[in-house]
Amino acid sequence: MQNNITRRFMMAATASVALFATTATSALAEGWAPQKPVEMVIMAGQGGGADRLARMFQAIIQKEGLSRMPMLPVNMGGGSGAEALRYLKDKEGDAHTIMATLNSYYTTPLRTDIGVNIEEFTPIARMAEDTFLLWVSADSGITSLDDYVAKVKTSGKDWKMGGTGTGQEDSLLTAMIEKTFGLEMTYVPFQGGGDVAKNLVGNHIDSTVNNPSEQMGFFRAGKSIPLVAFTPERLVQFPDVPTARELGHDLVYVMQRSFVAPPGMPAEAVAYYTEMFRQLSELPEWQKYTQDESLEPAFLTGNELQAYFLEEREKHRAILAGMEDGSS
């Protein structure tokens, strides 16, 4: 009897907690929910675009009560994300780990032998596509793409392009720029986009291809100048910056900002996180953020997302192959 009462009480308590949870989280799918804090692995170092974005997701998720359990961001930027990829692979079947991706999600397994095949990972959701601009420091006196190309041509290998690691998206974009304009620069790797941005303003490097969010603070303080945008259209935040296409060069490159999960994550958990991110993508905070930081919202999930990943991987394989030809 005693036991029965306890049990009933427990059931009532669970029900009311569940009720509370549902009211708080509007309409998250019933059923499976995380039982412990969810680890949010970030494939990059602190302060870069990926890091800021992931931490903002974490903050929104907690503020809006989209998850009953907190999200704990963990930076694993080592080796162009290899550390994170390997970590996720070893978490096979785990329901409490998700990972925020960059394009190094494709390139790192192609370049290094870490035993990771991204086909095995579980796709959750693509939140946005991030954009790139070419930046120089305000002290450089360079104001246009033509100036830039002329200056780099005379400097040759002394020209330092900063980035987040060989094989990272900025190094691919750098290779594409070099090819298009017939330039040769020295590519210097740093540990995150924030570090790159700081080193540009401190004049330790001469140019970068940062995401808008990484340079926004310096840009608004007048310390860095965007020369050209590698997007199909001009960016709302930078109406005066021409696109490469407008200037007659077909250079377009975007970076997906997505979430994936370990191989073999239980289907209920996948459904839970997918729904969580779908709700997040509809929030006004997120929509305002994408506009402020020049992100293109592009929500995609499930099989379509996996197909997109695999298609992009092939594109990157081609770019990487081109880079190797160029350097040898």
């Binding site: 800021r52 974490q58 503020k63 961001p73 924030g194 603070g217 310096f218």
Partner: peptide
């Protein structure tokens, strides 16, 4: 500068972005 000097300040930075504050020279 908007660059965290330690893991903990990286978290603080995340909070600030959420509150709509843009860390940086401005």
């Amino acid at each position: 500068l908007g660059i965290p000097g330690s893991p903990t300040t990286a978290l603080l930075l995340g909070g600030m972005v959420m509150w709509g504050l843009v860390p940086g020279p401005m």
